[in-house]
Simulated assay, not measured.
Amino acid sequence: MSHVTSRRMEAWIRAEDPSAVGAVRRRAVQLAERAGFDATLVGQTAVAVSEAVSNLVKHAVEGSVLVRLHPEAPATVEFIAFDTGPGMADIARALRDGYSSSGTLGIGMGAIARIAAGYDVHSLPGRGTVLAMHFTASRRPAPPAPASGLTRPIGDEEVCGDSFAISTTGAATTAMVCDGLGHGHIAAQASQLAVELFLQVCEQEPLAIVDHLHRRMGVTRGGAVAVARLAGGTVAYAGLGNVSGWIAHAQGRKGMVSVPGIAGHQGARLRQHTYELPGHATVIMHSDGLSERWDPAHVPGLFARTPAVIAACLLREAGTRRDDACVVAARPGP
């Protein structure tokens, strides 16, 4: 079994000024050293992230970057970046060494891809680019992750009141999202307790997990919670409050049902629902820091990408700076 939890101190850096290049590079070097990279690989990681951020600063619109220890793989540093334009029409061409373009991440993409242990890109002309890449101490790609999540605090806050946790057991993937009531440290206390409680009982059914959280979060301000388990071509789902759950694919999406309430304080009778999960579908869960108005048809090709890129693109498309935000994209395990 492996467990994945969010890091509520994740720091997004806006790539709108040349100073962002140095800030991201320093963060990447710090994490690479912590992950046990040798000196050569630390330097290569610094070069790759510097090149990517430099191109965002030069060519992007509203670029944002996150560098973190990879939540799904040990001794791995993950870099995620997105922007709102101008995008790339031909990603394969952009990956060729020597290719030059005014498009975001068009310069040096070949070198970046060669240094990284693994990467994934989604880009649409006029809409923007999402890039996720990772670097490993072993120099081998991290195993494909069935799920990935991102959090982003409100405005320029450092602490996010939303959190997520993911557990994988064999072919089953179980994910939890908690939106702590309000924002800041008090909301974060509630959502981080939800993570700890989830990890105690993550092998149980979603209904039992949500009930466990509801009974024990009364010592906090409380929050909205939802749990989804993906296995055997179905997804079992239970939620309390306004976390949104969707079954999404290129052709559209279907909502999953939560009941009204605040975990730890009040709520309607909890229920669990089971839905068919087509092989080409992805389960999306997000707090109300993302608008529900996103549409798979507006981001063609996205749901063929990795969960990390899907989550980052939805955060870009639907995220609001007026609230903490959390989004998880999940598929069944292998």
Rank of each mutant, 00 (worst) to 15 (best):
T5A: 10
S6W: 02
A15T: 12
V21D: 00
A28K: 11
A28L: 13
V29A: 14
T45D: 09
V47W: 09
A52Y: 02
S54Y: 08
V61C: 09
G63D: 00
H70D: 15
T84H: 05
A94P: 02
A94G: 01
R96V: 15
G98E: 04
T104I: 02
T104G: 01
G106A: 09
A116P: 08
A117C: 06
D120L: 04
L124P: 03
G128R: 03
T136S: 13
R139W: 06
R140M: 15
A145L: 01
E157S: 14
E157L: 12
S167M: 09
S167Y: 06
T168V: 08
A172H: 06
M176Q: 07
H183E: 14
I186E: 10
A187G: 14
Q189M: 12
S191D: 05
A194E: 06
I209M: 08
H212F: 12
L213F: 02
R215L: 12
G218R: 13
V219E: 15
G232P: 03
G233A: 08
A248Q: 03
V257W: 08
V259L: 10
E276S: 14
G289R: 00
D295G: 10
P296L: 02
V309T: 06
T320P: 07
C326M: 02
A329M: 04
A330Y: 01
G333N: 10
